[in-house]
Design a protein around this nucleic acid. Structure first.
Length: 809
DNA sequence: GACCTGCTGCGGCGTG
């Protein structure tokens, strides 16, 4: 046994901000426990748990070979930093261990070396673990595994990557009779206990949940206009507040300016360069469609203190873990409390320093959101991330992975996966269906050999024998399905990033557009690649990217309703609500400020017809469904067609007929009876299910997304997945993957449970109907949103001008 | 008193 005192001395010599938390962690680790760490960045959580691993290794009589510790991170960009820190501590603490790295970036040479001899510790991603599982000697690779640490577990738990992690752990736990110590590291989420339970499984009963009681002070300040009138009623960009941002940038060494969407990042970067040309070279941009090399450069430059400001989307949420900054500005509502909190924590890393975040509202109602965020963070209220259950696509992929690798016996494998949270309730029938699916393709596809991937050996072992199948499987592993994109590169070959097919298809050769902060001219479009050159022009469109929508979380919704009720009673707490007072009072005069037990309904007639607005404040997703449901239920009673628009505050249904809303309110429009049937009938469920199915088909290996660098086109992908979708619908309606697609639409897209509780709340609410002759601050943004879909920007401003005339003022 | 919307993440092969 070697002496552990130098290691402890090394550790103690550092000036930790959270020494007690760290000590509690490594002591729990040495006591053989599993657990969950809840700690903000900068609390030394990596070292806390890594010290446990190091001390344990030092206490053993000789240096063991083979893989003992796996450290999982959701972001491969972080992996290198973590590995370096871990290797360094090994060296300095006197432990003769190698810390390895295994992600998609790892070189072939390195992989070969690892295959021969795994390092004692490996920093990796969930996907790379599964790639290792697809190798013949997987069992040998993981045989000596003692510990698995999953960093940023909150990022994984709510998605299919989390399910993959659960499956990998189930496999590991089975290999070794000694329990695998399992640790989760998580930022603050509402369901910490559940998060621990999902990852730890059976080990949860004896689990340590250790929180860094840093009591980090966070100061939130809204950037308020002098006059609320200068804040638009509608809008999302916020660039009119740019003059207030520049002094903040000047006063700090490095600032992260978070925007909600990629195009907004492009706009802000451009405007910032326009307004403050002296910052050229000191401001950079970072979002998910830019070349990773560029992003890496930005991250490094930020770290080196060379940048004054990075305009970014949440692509930098995790990536700056090792690159602390001085100041954070959030442009527009972050739509969730936990996300805002995490971003705030990026600033003020020095011991004892206060984190500060500026909130920059892009339209007036966002000031309510600002007030709510402040309170929620003070009260430590955070959203939960709910683990997925029974994702059949992920399970099917995993089974083929095992069959490509060591092979598996159904009985033991079923036992393993049932020990995971995700598949604990998997029925025997579902299990047989999965086995049938991987061996024959299932009842409707059994005529095609390519879906019969797995064969059964005489001894009952399930294996993949075809090299082609194995290769294609390895090429399709993982649960992230991305849309095919157009690569943008210079004629010389330098790669810039990606835009969407539809954006570039609207351009002609010679047209210019803004991207990556440059004005580019389209030279050629071929093979999913747009070749461009720099242009001196100053005009051109900015690409927009489709992507996930962030919708108010229910935590935010509840608090927003309360704030509006407060306002109705004349209570305006805090600078934001004070600032908003005149506007809300105006709204109260024009219409009404609803209490939490009331639902406000506004009706306006214009030359377009009858507009009806409702404000459940449930977030855009729920509003979309509610609006469709309402439109459907009304149209059942008489032939009316509606157009629908929504935002996070409420929704609009518009008909060209002259109607009165009271005539319909009697119809029990919000009844929970036949709810699901009506929803199915009202939303174009199959369209959405088809889209979900495309992902499921890719994950489960039904469609092949092409060879690396040569992705198939969107059309092709869409076509093959819709074809299979149709086959299943017609010939195999009980297909579990089809069912999963429908279920995902309901539970993930529409948040079924939230929809139900929203409806039951609405049913108890008193309905207040206001008939108005002019738009209110509540309905105006929704009105504009609907128009935007039909008009170009210029026509839109004309149209808005016309609205001013029409409604008079 | 009035414009610009929609995030992130991973992994793999063979050939020239």
């Amino acid at each position: 046994m070697s002496d552990i005192s130098p290691a402890l001395a090394w550790f103690k010599s550092k000036e930790w901000t959270a020494f007690e938390f760290q000590q509690a962690t490594w002591q729990a680790y040495l006591a053989g426990k599993s657990g969950l760490l809840n700690a903000p960045t900068g609390s030394g959580k990596t070292y806390a748990i890594w010290l446990g691993c190091v001390l344990e290794a030092l206490q053993s009589p000789k240096v063991e070979t083979g893989l003992q510790v796996i450290w999982v991170t959701p972001l491969r960009a972080l992996a290198k930093d973590i590995r370096n820190a871990m290797q360094l501590t090994c060296n300095e603490m006197g432990l003769n261990w190698e810390v390895g790295l295994r992600t998609g970036d790892t070189s072939t040479k390195e992989r070969a070396a690892q295959k021969k001899q795994m390092p004692q510790a490996l920093v990796t991603t969930p996907e790379s673990i599964h790639v290792l599982l697809s190798q013949k000697d997987a069992a040998k690779t993981f045989k000596k595994l003692k510990t698995v640490v999953v960093d940023e577990w909150h990022e994984l738990i709510g998605g299919k990557r989390g399910v993959q992690m659960e499956l990998a752990l189930a496999y590991f736990r089975h290999l070794n009779p000694k329990p695998i110590k399992t640790w989760a590291i998580s930022a603050t989420i509402g369901n910490l206990q559940e998060a621990a339970q999902v990852l730890l499984g059976d080990l949860y009963s004896d689990c340590a949940i250790i929180r860094a009681n840093l009591n980090k002070k966070i100061v939130i300040e809204s950037i308020l206009p002098d006059d609320v009138k200068s804040l638009p009623w509608s809008g999302h960009l916020g660039t009119n507040m740019l003059p207030s941002v520049i002094p903040i940038l000047e006063a700090n060494n490095s600032t992260l300016l978070f925007t909600n969407v990629r195009s907004q990042t492009e706009v802000w970067y451009q405007k910032l360069m326009d307004k403050a040309p002296e910052l050229a070279g000191l401001v950079a941009m970072h979002h998910g469609s830019l070349d990773t090399k560029v992003r890496q450069w930005v991250e490094d430059a930020l770290h080196a203190g060379k940048l004054k400001c990075v305009v970014c989307t949440s692509s930098l949420d995790l990536g700056v873990d090792f690159r602390p900054v001085d100041m954070v500005i959030q442009v527009g509502g972050p739509k969730g409390i936990a996300r805002f909190f995490q971003r705030a924590g990026r600033s003020g890393h020095q011991p004892g320093a206060t984190s500060k975040i500026y909130f920059l509202p892009t339209h007036s109602l966002e000031l309510i959101e600002a007030a709510v965020l402040k309170e929620a963070i003070a009260n430590k209220q955070f959203e939960s991330r709910n683990p997925l259950k029974k994702s059949i696509d992920v399970l099917v992929q995993y089974l083929v992975t095992l069959a490509v690798g060591p092979g598996f016996y159904p009985e033991t494998t079923l036992e393993q996966i049932r020990q995971s949270h995700a598949y604990a309730k998997l029925t025997d029938q579902e299990w047989s269906w999965c086995l049938e699916f991987i061996t024959t393709g299932g009842s409707s596809l059994s005529a095609y050999d390519e879906y019969a991937k797995v064969e059964i050996e005489p001894d009952g072992r399930y294996v993949v024998k075809s090299r082609k199948t194995a290769m294609r499987h390895r090429l399709s592993m993982g649960t992230i399905v991305s849309d095919p994109v157009i690569k943008v590169r210079y004629a010389g070959g330098k790669y810039i990033g990606t835009v969407e097919e539809y954006f570039i298809s609207h351009l002609k050769i010679g047209d210019t557009f803004w991207f990556a902060g440059r004005n580019l001219e389209l030279v050629r479009l071929k093979d999913m690649t747009a070749t461009v050159r720099n242009s001196k022009k100053k005009t051109g469109p900015i690409p927009r990217w489709g992507g996930g929508k962030a919708s108010f979380t229910s935590l935010l919704s509840d608090a927003m309703r309360q704030k509006i009720e407060d306002a109705s009673k004349g209570v305006f707490e805090g600078p934001e609500m004070q600032k908003l007072k005149p506007l809300l009072e105006k709204h109260a005069k024009l219409s009404a400020l609803p209490h939490t037990n009331q639902l406000l309904v506004e009706q306006i007639k214009s030359d377009e017809g009858t507009h009806i607005y409702m404000y459940p404040l449930e977030g855009k997703y729920i509003h979309d469904v509610l609006a469709a449901l309402l439109a459907y239920r009304i149209s059942v009673s008489q032939p009316i067609s509606f157009s629908i628009a929504s935002n996070d505050y409420g929704f609009e249904i518009l008909t060209d007929l002259d109607i009165e809303i009271e005539d319909f309110l009697e119809l029990d429009l919000f009844s929970e009876e036949n709810l699901m049937d009506d929803i199915y009938a009202s939303i174009n469920n199959t369209e959405m299910a088809k889209r979900k199915f495309r992902d499921i088909a890719a994950i489960s290996g039904l469609i092949f997304q092409g060879y690396p660098g040569k992705n198939v086109t969107n059309k092709h992908l869409q076509a093959s997945s819709s074809m299979i979708f149709k086959v299943f619908q017609d010939y195999d309606p009980e297909n579990l993957l089809l069912k999963q697609a429908n279920e995902e639409v309901l539970s993930l897209q529409f948040e079924k449970s939230r929809l139900k509780s929203a409806l039951s709340r609405i049913n108890q609410q008193e309905i207040i109907v206001k008939k108005l002759s002019q738009p209110t601050p509540f309905c105006f943004p929704i009105m504009v949103d609907r128009l935007r879909e039909r008009y170009t920007n210029e026509l839109l401003s004309e149209r808005i001008a016309k609205m001013q005339l029409e409604f008079g003022d």
